[in-house]
Deep mutational scan, measured.
Amino acid sequence: SKIRITWGDKTWEWDGDDEEVWKRILEWARNLGDEELWRHVKEWVDK
């Protein structure tokens, strides 16, 4: 399956939905430097 994140007018996609993928997404969000996006992603990961 895919994980799709839409933020503003951008959309990103990742293949898979296991823990490793979420770790990569969390790292990606942090590297993007958008605090609010990172917080949202972290909330999803922690669920």
Rank of each mutant, 00 (worst) to 15 (best):
D15S: 11
H40V: 10
R4I: 14
I5R: 00
H40A: 10
V41F: 04
E43G: 06
E19H: 15
L32T: 15
V21A: 06
T6Q: 12
R4S: 13
W44Q: 07
D9V: 02
K23L: 07
R39I: 12
R24F: 09
H40N: 09
W38V: 09
N31G: 13
R30I: 11
E13D: 07
V21T: 15
W14A: 02
I3G: 02
N31R: 11
K10A: 12
I3Q: 02
K2Y: 10
N31C: 07
W28S: 00
H40F: 15
G16M: 13
D15M: 08
I25G: 01
W28H: 02
E20V: 11
W28A: 01
W28N: 00
W28R: 00
K23F: 07
V45P: 02
K2S: 10
V21E: 02
E13K: 01
V45K: 11
E20F: 14
T6M: 10
S1G: 15
W22Q: 03
K42R: 12
W22L: 06
K10M: 13
A29L: 03
E36H: 11
V21I: 10
W44A: 05
V45R: 09
T11W: 10
L26N: 02
L26P: 00
R24K: 11
I5P: 00
E43Y: 09
D18F: 10
E27T: 09
E20A: 12
K10L: 12
W44E: 04
L26R: 03
E35T: 05
I5N: 00
W38N: 04
E20P: 03
K10W: 09
W12A: 04
W44K: 03
L37H: 02
G16T: 13
K23P: 06
R4E: 08
G16P: 11
W22D: 02
I25C: 01
K42I: 12
I5W: 05
V45G: 05
D46P: 07
K2T: 09
V41G: 00
E35Y: 07
W28T: 01
G33C: 08
N31I: 09
E43P: 01
W7T: 02
E19R: 12
L26G: 03
T11C: 12
E43C: 13
I3F: 03
D18G: 14
I5F: 15
V45S: 12
R30P: 00
E27V: 08
L26M: 10
E19V: 14
A29Y: 02
K42V: 12
R30E: 07
S1F: 14
R24V: 11
W28D: 01
V45T: 05
K42T: 13
G8M: 09
E20K: 11
E19N: 15
R39G: 07
L32Q: 15
K47V: 12
L26F: 06
R39A: 11
W7I: 06
W22R: 05
D18L: 13
E36W: 08
V45I: 14
K2W: 11
T11H: 08
D46F: 05
L37Q: 01
E35Q: 07
D34C: 09
K23Q: 12
L26H: 03
W12R: 02
V41I: 14
I3Y: 02
R39C: 08
D17Y: 08
W14N: 01
I3M: 04
R24H: 09
T11V: 13
D46Q: 10
E13A: 04
I3P: 01
R4K: 14
W28P: 00
G33V: 05
T6D: 05
E13V: 09
E13R: 01
E27K: 05
R30K: 11
K23A: 12
G16Q: 13
E19S: 13
D18R: 08
D46Y: 05
I25D: 00
W7Y: 10
W7R: 03
I3R: 02
G33M: 08
W12P: 00
G33E: 09
K23S: 12
E36N: 08
D17F: 08
R30V: 08
D15T: 10
E36F: 05
I5S: 00
G8W: 13
